[in-house]
Structures are given as structure tokens and as C-alpha cells.
Amino acid sequence: MEFFLKTKLYFKNYLKGFKNYFRNFKIFNHGHGFKTILKLYFRVYQCFFKNSIMAESQYRLSFFLLIWFNFGWALVYIFLYVFIFKFVDQVGDWNYQRSLVLAATFLLVRALNSFLFKQNFQNFADLVYRGDLDFILIKPISSQFMVSLKKFYLRPFVRFIFAWLVLITVLVQNQIKLNIILVISYLLLLLISVIIVYSLWFISCCLVFWLGNIDNIHEVFQPVLRLTALPFDILPGVLKELFFLVIPLVFITTMPAKSLLGLLSWAACVYGFFISLVLFYLSAKVWHLALKYYVSAA
């Protein structure tokens, strides 16, 4: 009972804190309103995008080739399912067509996440270890925003288009019926998936504050992300529950694919939305905690 009352009080104070923050938004943001701040961030984000294009155009031939090799990796995943289903009829509830929807969704999710975060997280360990984080912390902008979104990785561009083409082809060829609600729920779940991937990936990168010089810390999350190429329903019992409730990997690929196929309940969607917010909040908390352990290099 005491625990319950304490938790209630904690949340009450927390909500009050939120309310006060929004009430005093202008004071906290040097007299700017919410809209102005949003516009400012958008303009900064636009600059980041322009800079990324300029950086990639430094080695144009290499960039051009890497776009196509990146597309080649997409082919690996699609061919994998094509070859396997020559020998297999069904894996759990997943037949050939459904598996291709899953594979295309996986490619979409990976392309989106690589596009938005990969380059930033690749530099994460260096920022902390070399002390370059100082230059970000002194800027009048959210440090988490700048650390996470400063650079775009433009190479998955063709892969992204290819994934949509595969998805549309499978849906049309197999006459899978769609309606506007399924499409919207698919897009929303893709968004949820991006938030979950970002949060988990970001939290895993933050470990560098405690573990020291691990320049490949951003790769810790890669095997986990690759695991999402599997339909999670086929995993043994305990793992299935674990990846649904505790580490919600199931929402990264399986749930969006299921939603498009009309196999998903609304309760699961709501839970996905809720858990993505919790993880995003947690990522911000971990970042603030990690900054307390940042010692710089000078």
C-alpha cells in the first residue's frame, strides 16, 4: 500500500512538473514560444540534411557505388525468403507471401533507421572518448537532439524505394485487401518502430560513458536489430513474451507487418504506442544520467 501511495505521489509531482514546464515554456526558452522553438529546430534539422549531402558528395563515385551495394544487401534478405520457401510451406502462421511482407517491412525499418541515426551513433563513442561532446553541450540546443540527428546516412535511399516496391508488388500480386485503417495503422506502427529502435539503440550507445573506449559500441544493437527479420511469433514461449513485454522488439518489424495483413489487435497497437513513449522517455533519462559521468578530455 505504501509503495502504491509513494508511486502515486511521484507521478503526481511529475505531472505537476510537466504542467509547470509548459506553463513556463517561454521562460525556459529565452522568451520564445513553442511554435518558434519548433521552427528553429526544423531549420537546424534542414541544415543537418544539407551538410550530410555535402559530406557525401565528397567521394561521389564511392557514394554512388555504396548506394547500389546497400541495395544488394536488400536483395540478400529477399532472396533468403525466396530460397527458403522453395523447401518450406509455412513457418508458424507465416506463409511465403506474408513472409515477403515481413521482409519488405524489415528493409523499410532498417533503411529508415540507418537514414536517420546510423551515422550519428557511429560517431557516438568518439564524441565521448575524445571529448568532442563539449562542442555540442555548449550549443543552445538540446544535446540529445544534436547527438542523435546531426548526420543523415543517405546510402539506403535505393533500398528504401526497393522495399516499398517489394511491398506493393506482394500486396497487388496476392490481392491482399487493404483499407485506409490498415494503411494508417501500418504507417503509425512504422513510426512507433522507429521510436523504439532509436531509444534502444541510443541507450545501448550511452553505455560508452561507463565502459570507456569502445569505438564499436553502436554495433551492439545491430545483432538485435537483425533478429527482427524473424517473425517473432515463431520464437519459443519465454522469448516471445520477453520480446513483447520487456524488450519490445516485436514492435519493430513483426507488428507493423501483421497490422498491414489485418492480423493485429488494437490492444497490441496501443501497448506499442505506450511502450515506445516509455522507451523514448527512458532514453532521455539515461542521457541525462550519462552526462553526469562525462568527464571530457581536457
Binding site: V91, G92, P223, L230, I234, L235, L239
Partner: peptide, 10 residues
């Protein structure tokens, strides 16, 4: 490892 879990289901 991912492929092993996949084949387990197959």
C-alpha cells in the same frame, strides 16, 4: 543464431 531459431520453427 537468428537462422537457428528460424529453422527450429520450420
Amino acid at each position: 543464431l537468428i537462422m537457428l531459431f528460424f529453422w527450429l520453427a520450420v
